[in-house]
C-alpha cells in the first residue's frame, strides 16, 4: 500500500527534528534571493513520511532506522569535531560535516551502536531534502509552494527576496 496523503503523525523528537533541519539547510541553503530547505520547511515532509504507519511504504521501516542511528551518529561526530550539538551547529560546521559524509570520510562518526553507511545516509538525506523542497505541499514540505514559485514550476519563475532585502 502506498499512502496518497501525508500522515498527520510526526516521527522525530524535537532535538532530532532540529538536527535534520540543520543538515537540510546545508544541503540546500537559502540565499538573499533564493529560497532553501528552511524556507520550504523541508524536514516536515520527512517527519510526516516516517510518522506514517510502517506499512504505508516499504522503505519507511528502513528509513526510520537509518535516521535514528544516522542523526545520533552525526550528532556525536559534530560534538567530537566542533564541540557543539548538531542541532546548534553553524551552517559552516554543518556544511563541513555533510561534505565529509558525502565523501565517506567523516572519521568522527562512531561505529557503535550501529555502523552507518556514510554515502547511503548522505544519499537519503539529499534525496529527502530535495523531495521536501520540491514535492507537492500536500506532503508537508515546499511550504506555500515557495520552491515551485521561485524555480518556475507550474507558473513562471518568480523573484524571491529574503525579508528586508532590496
Amino acid at each position: 500500500m502506498i499512502r496518497r496523503a501525508a500522515s498527520q503523525t510526526r516521527f522525530f523528537w524535537p532535538e532530532q527534528r532540529k538536527q535534520l533541519e540543520v543538515l537540510f539547510d546545508a544541503i540546500l541553503p537559502g540565499t538573499v534571493d533564493s529560497p532553501g530547505a528552511t524556507d520550504a520547511n523541508a524536514a516536515e515532509l520527512v517527519d510526516r513520511l516516517l510518522g506514517a504507519e510502517p506499512a504505508s511504504y516499504y522503505e519507511v521501516p528502513a528509513w526510520r532506522r537509518l535516521y535514528v542511528s544516522g542523526l545520533a551518529a552525526l550528532d556525536a561526530a559534530c560534538r567530537a569535531r566542533h564541540h557543539v550539538a548538531l542541532a546548534a551547529a553553524t551552517p559552516a560546521h554543518a556544511t563541513e560535516l555533510v561534505a565529509d559524509l558525502a565523501a565517506g570520510a567523516l572519521h568522527e562518526l562512531p561505529a557503535t551502536p550501529v555502523a552507518v553507511d556514510q554515502r547511503q545516509l548522505f544519499g537519503v538525506l539529499r534525496a529527502h531534502c530535495i523531495e521536501g523542497c520540491f514535492a507537492d505541499p500536500r506532503w508537508g514540505g515546499n511550504r506555500s509552494s515557495v520552491m515551485w514559485s521561485w524555480y518556475g514550476y507550474l507558473t513562471p519563475a518568480q523573484a524571491f527576496r529574503r525579508g528586508g532585502a532590496p
Binding site: A26, I27, L28, P29, T31, S34, R126, I130, M147, Y151
Partner: peptide, 28 residues
C-alpha cells in the same frame, strides 16, 4: 518534473549530484 530533475543536478562529468552552494548554482 522537478524532483527527478533536481536529484540529477550535476555541474559536469566529475561533479554529479551536487548539493549546497553548488546546488543553488545549478538551480539558478
Amino acid at each position: 518534473t522537478p524532483i527527478r530533475q533536481i536529484k540529477g543536478a550535476s555541474l559536469g562529468k566529475d561533479r554529479p549530484n551536487v548539493w549546497g552552494t553548488e546546488l543553488v548554482d545549478y538551480l539558478r
